[in-house]
Design a protein around this nucleic acid. Structure first.
Lengths: 226, 226
DNA sequence: CGGTGTGAAGCCTTTCACAGCA
DNA sequence: TGCTGTGAAAGGCTTCACACCG
């Protein structure tokens, strides 16, 4: 039970973190199903497509409300709507990419990055030689302009793709500018205040985890994380 | 307790998955400390650098054995050795990158990818126009050559950077060729046999999770996953 | 005295299994 | 009849708190 009413966000159900992390999988699976003009889907089928088990699907979806029909399954179109609303994909989130080395450029060019709702509105780099360069439709801007960029373009999400030593300073600037969601690709720990959501994607870490299991080969978990 | 002796892998302690996922963080923190010629570190200090809490550090490290000294802390050099041995970083793991679009190329050029122990030995793409192109020191090879490449160059880890529709077929080829560790960047579910370790990095999913918390802003977990 | 190593408690997540409804 | 929704059980992970030892 939510402890307080909140007028501008109607549903205040509390959804477990583990469930939130799986909603994108269901969302993707549901889009595939919808593409095939299938009207109804069972937890079993959805589980298959999302790579999880059916009990988990049912429990997860039950946190969003009771949108299934017993004996039948879930109405695909309706469920897509509920999941995308829950994930905030009915809005548009302006994204800034910080750091335009190999990875930053790849992200900037990545079609399907802005699959739905995510729009890259700024590319920022500290290197004066890079400032002014065009990448796709955008021009690289100086990091000093960050706070005005964030304010003017309503940047909601910052993607850090700088080298490790620059990451914390960039994160600090993002937070100071009011960005509350950060995705960190730099291979280093970044600390942010508790009201900021930080997630990280770390190549070196992933490879090292694979290395661990490769070496300890015997009953290996193949659980893909997220 | 391990249930069977295994002659070629001496230590058969079973380490929780959550601990394995944090070892790379400790490893990185330890390297930083070692760089400053500091001989001893406490769980408190290590926790700070790794972005976790001290109790977790102690519990995690206790799974590797008792390498700390009460009243003193952990010997940095010794611990670096133990952690890197546990992670399999004392060996060299040949890596193949599959799919050389924006992301694949960025990965291929990413210095620090092969931070330690990971060496990119092959670039493979299904597109005949790309085959033969040079990327860094390597030349893109056809996907048909994959199984002989894997065999000859002892590829241990496959990194899938193809578009989503091609990912499963590439994974199947990798598995058939004997690759037992796969890192999937394609935004789709990939299924592999249980003896293969699969991890995934999914940009769209990460952004959608951020979107969820952005929209439900109220007590937000900033727990960075991994 | 200070900091590790670790039982025990608490919390979160997953899985089970079936009541209940269309 | 078939499949959802959900209590209850099981399992795993985190945190606590302190005995123990250098």
């Amino acid at each position: 039970m939510p402890r307080r009413e909140e007028p501008d966000i109607p549903e205040a159900r509390l959804i477990p973190e583990a469930t939130v992390a799986r909603l994108p999988l269901y969302y993707r699976a549901l889009l595939e199903i919808a593409d095939q003009s299938i009207g109804t889907v069972s937890s079993e089928q959805l589980a298959e497509l999302a790579g999880v088990n059916a009990a988990k699907v049912r429990k997860d979806l039950s946190h969003l409300g009771s949108y299934g029909t017993r004996g039948v399954g879930y109405d695909v179109e309706h469920l897509v709507g509920e999941v995308s609303r829950e994930l905030g994909l009915t809005r548009d989130w302006p994204v800034a990419i910080l750091g335009l080395g190999n990875l930053g450029r790849a992200l900037a060019n990545y079609r399907g990055f802005g699959a739905r709702g995510f729009r890259i509105v700024a590319l920022v780099d500290a290197d004066p030689d890079k400032v002014g360069q065009a990448v796709g439709d955008l021009t690289i801007e100086p990091v000093e302009a960050l706070s005005s960029i964030v304010a003017q373009r309503r940047v909601a999400i910052g993607v850090i793709a700088t080298p490790a030593p620059a990451a914390q300073a960039v994160a600090d600037r993002l937070v100071a500018a009011g960005v509350a969601s950060i995705l960190n690709f730099a291979p280093t720990v970044v600390v942010v205040p508790p009201e900021v959501t930080l997630r990280k994607v770390d190549l070196a870490t992933e490879l090292q985890i694979l290395s661990f299991y490769q070496q300890h080969r015997r009953r290996v978990p193949d659980r893909a994380r997220v």
